[in-house]
Protein backbone atom coordinates (compact mmCIF):
# COMPACT_ATOMS: atom_id res chain seq x y z
CA UNK A 1 0.00 0.00 0.00
CA UNK A 2 1.45 3.33 -1.06
CA UNK A 3 2.13 5.73 1.71
CA UNK A 4 1.05 9.25 1.19
CA UNK A 5 3.13 12.02 2.67
CA UNK A 6 2.01 15.57 2.98
CA UNK A 7 4.28 17.59 0.71
CA UNK A 8 6.67 19.91 2.48
CA UNK A 9 6.98 23.52 1.48
CA UNK A 10 10.48 22.70 0.34
CA UNK A 11 9.23 19.90 -1.83
CA UNK A 12 6.60 22.12 -3.38
CA UNK A 13 9.17 24.76 -4.12
CA UNK A 14 11.34 22.17 -5.82
CA UNK A 15 8.53 20.99 -8.02
CA UNK A 16 7.45 24.48 -8.95
CA UNK A 17 10.25 25.33 -11.43
CA UNK A 18 9.58 22.27 -13.56
CA UNK A 19 5.89 23.16 -13.62
CA UNK A 20 6.76 26.72 -14.53
CA UNK A 21 8.93 25.44 -17.35
CA UNK A 22 6.14 23.22 -18.64
CA UNK A 23 3.72 26.12 -18.62
CA UNK A 24 6.35 28.27 -20.26
CA UNK A 25 6.85 25.74 -23.03
CA UNK A 26 3.12 25.59 -23.59
CA UNK A 27 2.66 29.33 -23.65
CA UNK A 28 5.81 30.08 -25.61
CA UNK A 29 6.55 27.34 -28.10
CA UNK A 30 10.23 27.22 -28.95
CA UNK A 31 11.11 28.88 -32.21
CA UNK A 32 13.58 27.42 -34.58
CA UNK A 33 16.82 29.23 -33.75
CA UNK A 34 18.09 31.63 -36.39
CA UNK A 35 21.27 30.71 -38.26
CA UNK A 36 24.46 32.63 -37.52
CA UNK A 37 25.07 33.57 -41.15
CA UNK A 38 23.59 33.53 -44.63
CA UNK A 39 24.74 31.04 -47.25
CA UNK A 40 28.17 31.79 -48.77
CA UNK A 41 26.47 32.92 -51.95
CA UNK A 42 24.13 35.30 -50.12
CA UNK A 43 26.94 36.64 -47.91
CA UNK A 44 28.87 37.46 -51.10
CA UNK A 45 25.79 39.21 -52.46
CA UNK A 46 25.55 41.28 -49.28
CA UNK A 47 29.21 42.29 -49.62
CA UNK A 48 28.65 43.36 -53.19
CA UNK A 49 25.47 45.30 -52.28
CA UNK A 50 27.50 47.23 -49.70
CA UNK A 51 29.93 48.28 -52.44
CA UNK A 52 27.27 49.60 -54.83
CA UNK A 53 27.31 53.39 -55.21
CA UNK A 54 24.20 55.57 -55.36
CA UNK A 55 20.69 54.19 -55.10
CA UNK A 56 21.02 50.48 -54.33
CA UNK A 57 17.39 49.42 -54.31
CA UNK A 58 13.90 50.71 -55.06
CA UNK A 59 10.59 49.26 -53.98
CA UNK A 60 7.13 50.80 -54.15
CA UNK A 61 7.73 54.48 -53.32
CA UNK A 62 10.83 53.84 -51.24
CA UNK A 63 14.48 53.81 -52.07
CA UNK A 64 17.71 53.06 -50.26
CA UNK A 65 21.06 54.57 -51.19
CA UNK A 66 24.58 53.38 -50.41
CA UNK A 67 24.79 55.72 -47.43
CA UNK A 68 21.54 54.38 -45.99
CA UNK A 69 22.48 50.75 -46.56
CA UNK A 70 25.86 51.24 -44.84
CA UNK A 71 23.89 51.89 -41.65
CA UNK A 72 23.13 48.15 -41.56
CA UNK A 73 26.81 47.40 -40.99
CA UNK A 74 27.59 46.45 -37.37
CA UNK A 75 26.77 49.23 -34.85
CA UNK A 76 25.15 51.53 -37.45
CA UNK A 77 22.11 53.54 -36.39
CA UNK A 78 19.20 52.98 -38.77
CA UNK A 79 17.45 55.91 -40.43
CA UNK A 80 13.95 56.46 -41.79
CA UNK A 81 14.96 55.25 -45.27
CA UNK A 82 15.89 51.76 -44.09
CA UNK A 83 12.90 51.41 -41.80
CA UNK A 84 10.38 52.71 -44.35
CA UNK A 85 11.84 50.48 -47.07
CA UNK A 86 11.46 47.50 -44.74
CA UNK A 87 7.93 48.61 -43.89
CA UNK A 88 7.10 48.80 -47.60
CA UNK A 89 8.35 45.21 -48.01
CA UNK A 90 6.16 44.11 -45.09
CA UNK A 91 3.09 45.82 -46.54
CA UNK A 92 3.87 44.53 -50.05
CA UNK A 93 4.03 40.95 -48.77
CA UNK A 94 0.76 41.44 -46.94
CA UNK A 95 -0.96 42.78 -50.08
CA UNK A 96 0.38 39.86 -52.15
CA UNK A 97 -0.88 37.34 -49.60
CA UNK A 98 -4.27 39.03 -49.55
CA UNK A 99 -4.47 38.79 -53.32
CA UNK A 100 -3.54 35.12 -53.19
CA UNK A 101 -6.16 34.49 -50.54
CA UNK A 102 -8.87 35.97 -52.73
CA UNK A 103 -7.85 33.50 -55.46
CA UNK A 104 -7.60 30.75 -52.85
CA UNK A 105 -10.30 28.44 -54.20
CA UNK A 106 -8.61 27.92 -57.54
CA UNK A 107 -5.03 28.33 -56.41
CA UNK A 108 -3.32 25.05 -55.61
CA UNK A 109 -0.16 26.83 -54.53
CA UNK A 110 -1.87 28.48 -51.61
CA UNK A 111 0.21 27.55 -48.60
CA UNK A 112 -0.28 27.60 -44.89
CA UNK A 113 2.48 30.17 -44.72
CA UNK A 114 0.49 32.68 -46.71
CA UNK A 115 -2.45 32.20 -44.41
CA UNK A 116 -0.27 33.47 -41.56
CA UNK A 117 0.46 36.75 -43.27
CA UNK A 118 -1.92 39.25 -41.77
CA UNK A 119 -3.71 42.06 -43.56
CA UNK A 120 -1.57 44.97 -42.35
CA UNK A 121 -1.24 48.67 -42.93
CA UNK A 122 2.18 50.19 -42.40
CA UNK A 123 2.48 53.87 -41.50
CA UNK A 124 5.85 55.42 -42.31
CA UNK A 125 8.21 56.73 -39.64
CA UNK A 126 6.86 60.24 -40.31
CA UNK A 127 3.35 59.36 -39.17
CA UNK A 128 4.26 59.49 -35.49
CA UNK A 129 6.19 62.72 -35.91
CA UNK A 130 3.21 64.36 -37.62
CA UNK A 131 0.79 62.99 -35.03
CA UNK A 132 2.75 64.11 -31.98
CA UNK A 133 4.12 67.38 -33.36
CA UNK A 134 1.13 68.68 -35.38
CA UNK A 135 -1.78 66.55 -34.19
CA UNK A 136 -4.46 64.85 -36.29
CA UNK A 137 -6.07 68.01 -37.65
CA UNK A 138 -3.10 70.24 -38.32
CA UNK A 139 -1.03 67.27 -39.51
CA UNK A 140 -3.85 66.49 -41.99
CA UNK A 141 -3.61 62.84 -40.99
CA UNK A 142 -7.14 62.15 -42.23
CA UNK A 143 -5.73 62.41 -45.74
CA UNK A 144 -3.07 59.77 -45.07
CA UNK A 145 -5.82 57.16 -45.17
CA UNK A 146 -7.90 58.52 -48.04
CA UNK A 147 -7.30 55.23 -49.89
CA UNK A 148 -7.21 52.81 -46.97
CA UNK A 149 -9.70 51.80 -44.28
CA UNK A 150 -7.55 51.02 -41.24
CA UNK A 151 -10.57 49.62 -39.39
CA UNK A 152 -10.72 46.74 -41.89
CA UNK A 153 -7.11 45.70 -41.17
CA UNK A 154 -5.85 42.96 -38.87
CA UNK A 155 -3.11 45.19 -37.56
CA UNK A 156 -1.71 48.67 -38.18
CA UNK A 157 2.07 48.89 -37.78
CA UNK A 158 3.75 52.10 -36.69
CA UNK A 159 7.48 52.71 -36.20
CA UNK A 160 8.07 55.36 -33.55
CA UNK A 161 11.12 57.61 -33.42
CA UNK A 162 11.93 59.05 -29.99
CA UNK A 163 13.88 62.33 -29.96
CA UNK A 164 15.99 61.22 -32.91
CA UNK A 165 17.91 58.73 -30.74
CA UNK A 166 15.62 55.72 -30.36
CA UNK A 167 13.25 53.56 -32.41
CA UNK A 168 10.38 51.46 -31.09
CA UNK A 169 7.47 49.65 -32.73
CA UNK A 170 3.81 50.32 -32.00
CA UNK A 171 0.76 48.51 -33.30
CA UNK A 172 -3.00 48.83 -33.36
CA UNK A 173 -4.11 45.21 -33.20
CA UNK A 174 -7.73 44.97 -34.30
CA UNK A 175 -7.81 41.18 -34.03
CA UNK A 176 -6.89 41.19 -30.37
CA UNK A 177 -8.23 44.62 -29.50
CA UNK A 178 -4.88 45.77 -28.23
CA UNK A 179 -2.76 48.88 -28.48
CA UNK A 180 0.79 47.55 -28.46
CA UNK A 181 4.26 48.89 -27.84
CA UNK A 182 7.50 47.00 -28.38
CA UNK A 183 10.61 48.67 -26.99
CA UNK A 184 14.03 47.01 -26.98
CA UNK A 185 14.91 49.26 -24.03
CA UNK A 186 11.60 48.73 -22.18
CA UNK A 187 11.07 52.35 -21.24
CA UNK A 188 7.68 53.56 -20.07
CA UNK A 189 5.58 54.11 -23.18
CA UNK A 190 2.41 55.59 -21.75
CA UNK A 191 2.82 58.48 -24.23
CA UNK A 192 2.71 55.98 -27.10
CA UNK A 193 -0.53 54.45 -25.83
CA UNK A 194 -2.08 57.86 -25.40
CA UNK A 195 -1.03 58.83 -28.94
CA UNK A 196 -2.48 55.63 -30.39
CA UNK A 197 -5.78 56.16 -28.57
CA UNK A 198 -6.03 59.78 -29.66
CA UNK A 199 -5.32 58.81 -33.25
CA UNK A 200 -7.76 55.92 -33.33
CA UNK A 201 -10.54 58.09 -31.93
CA UNK A 202 -9.83 60.99 -34.29
CA UNK A 203 -9.64 58.69 -37.32
CA UNK A 204 -12.89 56.98 -36.37
CA UNK A 205 -14.63 60.32 -35.91
CA UNK A 206 -13.36 61.44 -39.32
CA UNK A 207 -14.13 58.28 -41.29
CA UNK A 208 -17.07 56.79 -39.38
CA UNK A 209 -18.51 59.96 -37.84
CA UNK A 210 -18.53 58.54 -34.31
CA UNK A 211 -16.13 58.22 -31.36
CA UNK A 212 -14.11 55.00 -31.31
CA UNK A 213 -15.47 52.43 -28.86
CA UNK A 214 -12.54 51.34 -26.70
CA UNK A 215 -14.61 48.77 -24.77
CA UNK A 216 -12.50 45.63 -24.41
CA UNK A 217 -9.33 47.32 -25.63
CA UNK A 218 -6.14 47.14 -23.59
CA UNK A 219 -2.68 48.65 -23.64
CA UNK A 220 -0.29 45.78 -24.22
CA UNK A 221 3.41 45.39 -23.47
CA UNK A 222 4.99 41.95 -23.80
CA UNK A 223 7.36 41.01 -20.99
CA UNK A 224 9.21 38.87 -23.52
CA UNK A 225 10.12 41.75 -25.83
CA UNK A 226 13.75 41.07 -26.87
CA UNK A 227 16.10 43.63 -25.38
CA UNK A 228 19.14 45.30 -26.92
CA UNK A 229 22.37 45.12 -24.97
CA UNK A 230 24.11 48.06 -26.64
CA UNK A 231 23.43 51.59 -27.81
CA UNK A 232 22.98 50.94 -31.53
CA UNK A 233 20.56 48.18 -32.47
CA UNK A 234 17.07 49.53 -31.69
CA UNK A 235 16.30 50.13 -35.37
CA UNK A 236 17.00 46.51 -36.23
CA UNK A 237 14.91 45.33 -33.28
CA UNK A 238 12.10 47.63 -34.40
CA UNK A 239 12.11 46.32 -37.98
CA UNK A 240 12.07 42.74 -36.73
CA UNK A 241 9.24 43.45 -34.27
CA UNK A 242 7.18 44.86 -37.16
CA UNK A 243 8.01 41.92 -39.41
CA UNK A 244 7.02 39.34 -36.76
CA UNK A 245 3.82 41.25 -35.96
CA UNK A 246 2.83 41.19 -39.63
CA UNK A 247 2.82 37.38 -39.39
CA UNK A 248 0.68 37.40 -36.26
CA UNK A 249 3.54 36.19 -34.04
CA UNK A 250 2.90 36.48 -30.32
CA UNK A 251 6.54 35.88 -29.42
CA UNK A 252 9.82 36.82 -31.04
CA UNK A 253 12.41 34.34 -32.23
CA UNK A 254 15.44 36.59 -31.95
CA UNK A 255 17.66 38.17 -29.33
CA UNK A 256 20.68 40.46 -29.22
CA UNK A 257 22.85 37.51 -30.34
CA UNK A 258 20.97 37.34 -33.66
CA UNK A 259 21.39 40.98 -34.59
CA UNK A 260 24.64 40.58 -36.61
CA UNK A 261 22.89 37.94 -38.74
CA UNK A 262 19.71 40.01 -39.00
CA UNK A 263 21.63 43.08 -40.16
CA UNK A 264 23.17 41.01 -42.98
CA UNK A 265 19.81 39.46 -43.80
CA UNK A 266 18.16 42.90 -43.98
CA UNK A 267 20.80 44.06 -46.49
CA UNK A 268 20.00 41.03 -48.62
CA UNK A 269 16.25 41.58 -48.26
CA UNK A 270 16.51 45.25 -49.20
CA UNK A 271 18.82 44.48 -52.12
CA UNK A 272 16.39 41.89 -53.44
CA UNK A 273 13.24 43.80 -52.37
CA UNK A 274 12.02 40.58 -50.83
CA UNK A 275 11.55 39.36 -47.26
CA UNK A 276 13.08 35.97 -46.53
CA UNK A 277 10.70 34.90 -43.80
CA UNK A 278 7.08 33.87 -44.19
Amino acid sequence: MATYENPTLNGLNLRQPSKDNAIDQYLRPQHTPLPSSLSDEDEAEVDSLLKQPGVVSRYAKEQVSDKDLARLKPDGWLNDEIINFYGALIMGRSNDAKENRSNETNNEDFTAKESQILDVHYFSTFFWEKLTRDGYEKGRLARWTKKVDIFSKDVVLIPVNHNNIHWTAAAINFRKQRLESYDSMSFDRSAVFKGLRDYLDAEHRDKRKAPFDFTGWEDYVSKDTPQQENGDDCGVFTCQFLECLSRGEETFNFSQDDIPYLRRRMIWEIGRSKLRTG
Partner: peptide, 15 residues
Protein backbone atom coordinates in the same frame (compact mmCIF):
# COMPACT_ATOMS: atom_id res chain seq x y z
CA UNK B 1 -2.58 71.04 -51.89
CA UNK B 2 0.25 70.75 -49.39
CA UNK B 3 3.55 68.89 -49.54
CA UNK B 4 5.21 68.09 -46.21
CA UNK B 5 8.97 68.30 -45.90
CA UNK B 6 10.46 65.93 -43.34
CA UNK B 7 14.07 65.62 -42.28
CA UNK B 8 16.05 62.43 -41.86
CA UNK B 9 15.29 60.50 -38.66
CA UNK B 10 17.82 58.25 -36.92
CA UNK B 11 17.96 56.13 -33.81
CA UNK B 12 20.11 53.53 -32.09
CA UNK B 13 20.02 54.47 -28.45
CA UNK B 14 23.30 55.40 -26.90
CA UNK B 15 23.01 55.53 -23.16
Amino acid sequence: DTIDVMVEQVGGYSS
